[in-house]
Nucleic acid binder design. Structure first.
Lengths: 345, 345
DNA sequence: CTGAAAGCGCTTACAG
DNA sequence: CTGAAAGCGCTTACAG
């Protein structure tokens, strides 16, 4: 691109050194604020020259020399899912606090070229890569390893790998289902996440545990898998409500699907919460503006992003990591849950 | 971080050259697929060596030599705003198609350190920067210029600068208001965007134009500024509805605020669309799942992201750019708009 | 068609 | 406290 040309006249460390009448090693030390002692007077001269010339250090040269970039990558499946917004914000704050920049990419725009994208990131653009949510194939994982890029799975566990940070999805599900049980529900269905999703697996697990703890044997017919999208939730809920013995409550694995669930209930001429109670995982800003305002389980998504960044940057990339962020999981009771209806429909 | 050490044993172009029994210049030419002719036999040998050794080129070295990075940056105010998800996806696709990677950052996690963040990006991490939406201060702009980083404003116009791509927000507003006028509304209020936002300004402009074209003089009391958030929409709509002569229709500048607008109407005991019609800008997936399903104006957000990337990469960064993406703007009629109520409230 | 050499802009032991 | 030199891994005119 034409831009490259424009940078030809760039100010380098040598220009600064010449102007300040010192060696460029001195300039480097001043710029990097090394512990090495430099005469205050000399430092001032260098600083002045830097200001006068508008010097900026060149990351490429620095990276080449130090074999590090000062950047952390975060790869997510889709920017449209607001859950990631929270994770990103947490990671961004943590990265900046440690003097790194965070660079986010997704496979949404990359399509089937995710591997190429990861490869490009691995060519030394980042010092490490956080892989959130989406499916990473073994081939992709190998690519990263071959490139020597440290990585860490975020919000999902790997098949054969043990480098991940997750939330306590199991407990979140138990909190949600526990709330429904407390209200007196016994026939509780689950709009689960997609079959492949690790978060979905753990939430389903928690759902079953909570039921069993209350002496209720989980029924397979009361679980319907759905994408983490409104459309997915709509279909799954429609199917569950059309069954012979419909549930009185739905535990939904994700806010996005809950949006579709509410529509499905309404379209069947039923009311939330009078006929059906609904509770979902993740307390996004949106939840309180749905109709009715949605009861949710708040998960520490920002902490997850922050902790992941921390672990990526501060642990040996060759050692296993399997951490569950234990920050509080809160039940946020709004209008979508109530006692079950008296008479059987 | 420990990772850097691990990369010490990295395979370089010299290793490949030695293995293939050629000069490293040859390896470079093969890797970069230069038009230079190389004997097929030699090429094969090099390719084999690359595979055997698992060679990956080092971007830092390449960047230093060529003064370009193969990366484009996109800076947005907040990942939580789904409007940006569409822009990002468009930009990502366009960047990848041109052999670049897109790296997204936001000021949400950066807080007041946006300038530091931009500076870090400008240290030669990207070949150009797309600045979407958020406020970029003159100081920040100067920083980028001083660093010689080409930039382009996306979805907003700058104060003194003319390097931007925007959508036709003016026309979007006219489409929305025109729809309300066609339905017979005469008293149409506007839940506008935040005072500083350029998109807000242009939508307000379109709103006024549409009214005037219908022979209606716009009233300042019928316009209320709001953040592009549910909470902002809630407050603005509440104020508008509390006035002595309330409107029969609301043109809302943004889907996020429309969510709050619907809540506000409901809390006043009014019904959408029987008492109040609501139409909003941006047709996000969410819109059809609101209650009632929201009538919207669909804007070509992906095209905007794609076109911005194209312009950034393919035009001279020292020349002005002021483009309006002219892709179709569509009215998507759902359940939130209807004819005005017969009798005056 | 291939090779040898210079040099991109830094950082960092090492020597003074 | 400061300086001179080597070298990180590439690409690219230039020469053969």
């Amino acid at each position: 691109m034409p831009a490259a040309t424009g940078r030809g006249g760039r100010v380098t460390i040598s220009d600064v050194a010449a102007r300040a009448g010192v060696d460029k090693a001195i300039v480097s030390r001043v710029v990097n604020d090394k512990a090495v002692s430099i005469r205050p007077e000399t430092r001032e001269r260098v600083l002045l020259a830097i200001r006068e010339l508008g010097y900026r250090r060149n990351m490429a040269a620095r990276s080449l020399r130090t074999a590090s970039t000062g950047a952390v990558g975060l790869f997510i499946p889709d920017f449209a899912n607001p859950v990631y917004a929270e994770i990103i914000t947490g990671a961004e704050t943590a990265a900046l606090a440690r003097g790194y920049v965070l660079m986010v990419g997704s496979s949404a725009g990359a399509g089937h070229r995710t591997k190429d994208y990861l490869e490009a990131l691995g060519e030394g653009r980042v010092d490490g890569l956080l892989l959130a949510g989406g499916p990473i194939s073994p081939a992709e994982q190998q690519t990263l390893d071959a490139q020597g890029v440290p990585w860490l799975l975020v919000n999902r566990r790997g098949r054969s790998t043990t480098r991940h940070v997750v939330l306590d999805d199991d407990r979140a599900a138990q909190v949600a289902v526990g709330h429904l049980l407390d209200l007196g529900h016994r026939r509780i269905a689950h709009v689960a996440g997609p079959a492949g999703a690790d978060t979905a697996r753990r939430r389903r697990e928690g759902y079953r545990k909570a039921l069993r703890a209350a002496g209720i044997e989980p029924e397979a017919s009361l679980v319907a898998a759905a994408d983490y999208t409104p459309a997915g939730g709509f279909e799954a809920a429609s199917a569950l409500l059309a069954s012979g013995r419909p549930p009185t409550a739905l535990f939904v694995a994700n806010v996005a699907s809950a949006i579709g669930v509410l529509t499905a209930v309404r379209e069947r001429g039923l009311s939330v919460p009078d006929d059906i109670s609904v509770v979902a995982v993740h307390d996004l800003p949106l939840a309180e503006h749905l109709v009715p305002a949605l009861t949710t389980v708040r998960m520490p998504l920002r902490s997850l992003g922050a902790r992941a960044t921390e672990l990526l940057l501060e642990t040996d990339p060759r050692r296993p990591v399997a951490e569950v962020v234990r920050d509080p999981i809160d039940l946020v009771i709004r209008r979508s849950t109530a006692r079950p209806p008296r008479r059987r429909r």
